[in-house]
Design a protein around this nucleic acid. Structure first.
Lengths: 137, 137
DNA sequence: GTGATTGCAAATCTTTTGCACTAAA
DNA sequence: TTTAGTGCAAAAGATTTGCAATCAC
């Protein structure tokens, strides 16, 4: 039985045609960062008939099932990341490009304790960069 | 001459009625985190006639002028922070509340070097927390 | 006066929703 | 069958824009 199908079953999601196809696009390559719009475009390009609404649903379901996570770096656009390991990000403000930084490379020492009654969910480190605009020769 | 007016002049913004009033709301108290919608509400409550569009413009102008900065923690909503010092944030996913963490309290060691040709703009550390939902006694 | 700024309403963009239709089990 | 999942188009939010009216200098 296809790996993707099992993977979906394990997290309680019916392996529908759309979910399987999107999962393949997402997880078959290496780690990826996509927006819903992008993934929808890829699906269409790959002749997978799926609506944008379903892409949104699917991304959120995958995220809820911990198959991926959401990265918020820009107002008004969400990125979904297929890497669920502990890690951080470079975000290029010029290009909108996201790049993983392995968790071990960033040492966040001495977290202040959270306000009373609150539990830490996750620590996001976003290194915002900008491309030098020296004209390329 | 009023301090706010000078402050706006120094960054090249005409001290219009709306800008001065918004600046007072923003900078007269301590450090603040507001959304455009919130600030607009406060302005109206304070009998300051200003449109939402102008609030957006003003927040972006203040941000461009380094009087404040934008904090992106949730898809679909921008917070503006009157604290321009080097610092980080707690973000409570239950309440949408932001709280500053002084920069010194978070030691981010050993930044990986950014991709070639890119310059670090800023490092954002967001500690996502969630309120325990133990019923309060 | 003159050019910057504002207000309004319409437009835009991303994301969500309602509901009839389709498909997995 | 039965219930979950999908597609479409409409709705919902947040934010931006175009342009005439208004204000600071």
């Amino acid at each position: 039985m296809p790996i993707v199908v099992e993977r979906l079953r394990r997290v309680g999601l019916r392996p529908t045609r759309q979910r399987v196809a999107l999962a393949r696009l997402l997880f078959d390559g290496g780690d990826r960062h996509v927006t819903a719009e992008q993934l929808h475009g890829e699906a269409l390009a790959a002749a997978i008939r799926v609506s944008l609404a379903t892409v949104y649903n699917t991304l959120h379901q995958f995220t809820a099932a911990s198959l991926m996570r959401e990265v918020v770096v820009e107002p008004g656009r969400s990125y979904f990341d297929t890497n669920t390991d502990d890690h951080h990000h470079f975000f290029c403000e010029s290009t909108g490009h996201l790049q993983d930084i392995p968790g071990e490379l960033v040492r966040v020492g001495e977290l202040p304790r959270p306000p009373a009654g609150a539990k830490i969910q996750r620590v996001d480190v976003i290194i915002r960069i900008r491309q030098d605009n020296r004209a390329p020769r």
